[in-house]
């Protein structure tokens, strides 16, 4: 019985399994892009990979990706957050309401939007921990509550962000697509920025969260809770605190997504982001998140969000109707979950 030989290459926090997974995600993205590029070219004569289309796709990914960052934490902790779409709408509405109805400075309104999102997550988390409710039920309740609140705050109709100076505000600039041509009176960003600032902001958040997730004690504790709650408790992990934090962070990211949504739409729409929870959960699952907890990665989920956008916008570019898009997204969620099960079975 001797010491096991150690492979120095593998010891750098880098496992072959996650490597192949990332490769296969990248492969999927390239393959899908290629398919839609050819389809759009042949069927419609469009360029799927035109600069403007890629920009649009990137901007569409932002909301899903931000939600997916928070959702990854929740799913890895062994939970789920069905309220995320409604919470996005609520924080979007609260931000617009703050500026337009309360007349507070934009920064304060944004803060209110973020707080609204975090508060929803905090409440969900506390309910789950205090009353030992299934996350499914607790967040299903929050889904209704947040949507209803958004409608109450907005008095059932969108609050338009049209105060004087909105078009020049920093928030609006977050979702301005860079362009070669400057049009008088419209916000302009030079094309060397490539994507709208929101895309870069999202990537920055992803980087920070990925680091926290894989290297920080908190992130490791999230994995521990999702992998085996009682073992985590036995190891001194404060399970309840981790859970509450995870839902609060998910709410915060829903809040960020809502604020950026408000910027993109220039309004707070209480009926926005309906069924986004599905796309967001799908992104996490496609990206390798396991609904039984303990597995998942931020960049996997981001890749999942990109894949969903490519499919949606690809289908749109070949003029598949949105109803059929919904069907296909549903099929993809189930397919990804089946694939996940298979891989688990193979491991056993």
């Amino acid at each position: 019985m001797n010491e096991a030989p150690l492979n120095p290459q593998v010891s750098k926090g880098f496992s072959w399994q996650s490597y192949t997974r990332q490769l296969s995600l990248l492969g999927t993205i390239i393959l899908l892009t290629l398919i839609f590029w050819i389809l759009a070219k042949v069927l419609k004569g469009n360029n799927f990979l035109s600069f403007s289309n890629v920009q649009i796709m990137a901007s569409h990914t932002v909301i899903t990706a931000l939600g997916a960052i928070g959702m990854t934490l929740v799913i890895v902790s062994g939970g789920i957050d069905l309220s995320i779409g409604s919470v996005i709408a609520l924080s979007m509405v609260v931000t617009a309401w703050g500026v337009e109805r309360l007349g507070v400075p934009l920064e304060v309104a944004v803060l209110m939007g973020l707080l609204a999102g975090s508060a929803c997550g905090l409440v969900s988390g506390l309910i789950i921990v205090w009353f030992r409710l299934l996350p499914f039920i607790a967040t299903l309740g929050m889904m209704g509550i947040a949507r209803g609140l958004a409608k109450v705050v907005a008095e059932r109709k969108p609050i338009n962000l049209d105060y004087k100076g909105w078009e020049d505000s920093w928030l609006k600039y977050l979702t301005v697509n860079p362009s070669n041509v400057e049009i008088e009176g419209l916000p302009y960003l030079p094309s060397w920025i490539l994507f709208q600032p929101a895309v870069w902001v999202t990537l920055l958040f992803a980087l920070v969260m990925a680091a926290i997730f894989s290297r920080h004690i908190f992130g490791r504790h999230v994995f521990a809770v999702g992998s085996n709650e009682s073992a985590a408790r036995l190891c001194g992990v404060q399970v309840s605190r981790v859970k509450v934090l995870v839902y609060t962070i998910c709410g915060l990211f829903a809040g960020i997504a809502g604020v950026i949504f408000a910027s993109r739409q220039s309004q707070g729409d209480p009926t926005a982001a309906v069924a986004y929870e599905l796309h967001i959960i799908a992104a996490v699952v496609i990206g390798g998140g396991s609904l039984t907890g303990g597995e998942g990665s931020i960049f996997g989920s981001i890749a999942g969000a990109v894949i969903i956008t490519i499919i949606r916008s690809g289908l749109r570019s070949v003029q598949v109707t949105s109803d059929v898009q919904e069907i296909l997204i549903g099929v993809i969620i189930v397919g990804a979950a089946i694939l996940d099960r298979w891989q688990h079975r193979k491991k056993e």
């Binding site: 496992s15 490791r220 994995f223 521990a224 992998s227 085996n228 009682s230 073992a231 985590a232 036995l234 190891c235 992990v237 303990g294 597995e295």
Partner: peptide, 15 residues
């Protein structure tokens, strides 16, 4: 209760 079976040995040892 003892182990987190789908986490790494390193994480299990140091958790």
């Amino acid at each position: 209760e003892g182990l987190l079976t789908n986490l790494s040995i390193a994480d299990n040892l140091t958790l």
